[in-house]
Design a protein around this nucleic acid. Structure first.
Length: 154
DNA sequence: GCCAACGTTGGC
DNA sequence: GCCAACGTTGGC
């Protein structure tokens, strides 16, 4: 999952202890949260729009998917006039921090790494703009290895 | 700040 | 259903 550290970085997640991942307004990203993510699933936390961008921590899905409350806040930045309580359009999961990585793994490193598992990662593909994406197990293992994190994907 | 990539909107 | 216009993302 990607976030701009100035807006909501890993340190914010640590400070909050737990947070609803609200404001996502992309259908593909929504579908991953709503349909694929389960409590206890591990998440790699990525800092975007910063130099250098990269993976900085491990988080965990802390809830089932539920309707994003910000879609109902009329006048708010995430309001969606077409969403109703009966038929919500946007869903999210809560996230909680697990651990910061011993060192950041930059986007450059991920692109340069020869491990074929990483080429499966949507993040390194051209024109990637998805803020929530699946990480194949092999790619997750390699990223944690690059980070000097000995715990594997646990 | 620039701009390529890409998703969404809306006229037709 | 097509596609031009527009807005956003995000690396650089």
């Amino acid at each position: 999952m990607k976030s701009e550290p100035e807006t909501y970085g890993y340190h914010h997640l640590e400070a909050d202890g737990r947070t609803p991942w609200d404001g996502v307004r992309n259908y593909q990203a929504r579908n991953y949260m709503r349909d694929e993510m389960r409590p206890g699933d591990r998440v790699l936390f990525y800092h975007s729009n910063v130099r250098p961008p990269g993976v900085v921590g491990v988080a965990e899905v802390a809830s089932e998917a539920y309707p994003d409350p910000t879609q109902f806040v009329s006048g708010g930045p995430y309001a969606d006039p077409k969403a109703t309580r009966e038929r919500p359009r946007w869903f999210l999961v809560d996230l909680k921090p697990v651990r910061r990585l011993p060192r950041m793994v930059t986007l450059d490193e991920l692109k340069a790494d020869p491990d074929p598992a990483l080429s499966e990662l949507p993040l390194v593909r051209r024109g990637n703009r998805l803020s929530v994406m699946p990480v194949p197990p092999g790619a997750a293992a390699r990223i944690l290895e690059l980070a000097g994190d000995g715990r594997g994907t646990t």
